[in-house]
């Protein structure tokens, strides 16, 4: 392969890899297993698929990390491409949340739908107090945005230990956020199947929470890598990707806080 001899171009000719095929198998098993579970069966097939997916993700990204450190594959232009790819991926994620916000506004505002209820929250629904735990969570996430930025500054200064410390703090803040959200979910008076308010609330905040967990894991991995001194001031694509993802998660939360928690809980739509 080209990497065995001098490449005459700066691009990464990736060696053949089994992870895409095995990953697809995992997705397929998750699909069949998911349907099995949803139609009353056990969850084991789905769980198997999920575990395979976790393993494939681990092996695939482990390969990427190794390639980034072999001195050959990740040239400047390849790193630029990776950053571009991450930005594009995040753009697609924005559109995913766009769908849930659309559903939320369609369901809650009469101007968008003939069937939106006269008041929002609908009669009988007791919303969460936006200025209690949700506001605390906003502070937590905004702070975590700051801590990851401090980590970045430390990284640019070449201070691996400081980078790791700020990353760890970010991870802890992320975990705290998730903990508080879980608490709220358990203590909310409206259940998952409670109608349109519940549906829009739990799906929008739930997918956000899922993305927080993914982002936290990503930052955790970066913490470990920072401690192992993988990142240099010139080359730290993985860190940037995790940080951007985290900021995206933060921005989605701000929209959720303003529109779902604050506006949505205030009875702003005239009854």
């Amino acid at each position: 392969m080209a990497s065995e001899q001098t490449k005459k171009h700066p691009y990464h000719m990736v060696e053949p890899s089994p992870w895409p095929a095995i990953g697809t198998l995992a997705a397929f098993i998750m699909a069949i297993g998911g349907v099995w579970y949803m139609k009353g069966g056990t969850i084991y097939l789905f769980a198997t698929g999920l575990l395979i997916l976790f393993w494939v993700s681990y092996r695939w990204w482990r390969d990427v990390v190794a390639e980034s450190r072999n001195g050959v594959d990740h040239t400047n232009v390849v790193r630029l491409g990776l950053r571009m790819g991450m930005v594009l991926f995040i753009a697609s994620e924005v559109m995913f949340f766009f769908a849930f916000f659309w559903a939320y506004f369609h369901s809650s505002m009469p101007i968008f739908s003939l069937v939106a209820p006269e008041s929002w929250p609908p009669k009988g629904v007791v919303p969460l107090d936006a200025w209690s735990v949700p506001f605390l969570n906003t502070v937590i996430l905004l702070s975590s945005g700051a801590t990851v930025t401090f980590a970045h500054h430390a990284l640019l200064q070449g201070n691996a230990k400081k980078t790791a410390r700020w990353l760890l703090l970010t991870v802890l803040l992320g975990l705290t956020f998730t903990g508080f959200q879980a608490y709220e979910y358990v203590h909310a008076t409206f259940t998952f199947t409670g109608g349109i308010y519940s549906s829009t609330f739990y799906l929008a905040t739930g997918f956000h929470g899922f993305h927080v967990i993914v982002g936290t894991i990503f930052l955790f991995v970066c913490w470990r890598r920072a401690k192992a001194e993988h990142f240099t001031p010139e080359a730290h694509v993985g860190f940037e990707a995790a940080a951007w993802y985290w900021h995206f998660v933060d921005v989605v939360w701000l929209f959720l806080f303003v529109w779902v928690y604050w506006w949505g809980g205030s009875g702003a739509v005239a009854g």
């Binding site: 069937v115 349109i196 549906s199 799906l203």
Partner: peptide, 14 residues
């Protein structure tokens, strides 16, 4: 969930 279920506040047109 009730996204498209008119009986529970949803809307098929969504």
């Amino acid at each position: 969930t009730a996204f498209f279920d008119a009986a529970r506040g949803g809307d098929p047109v969504l």
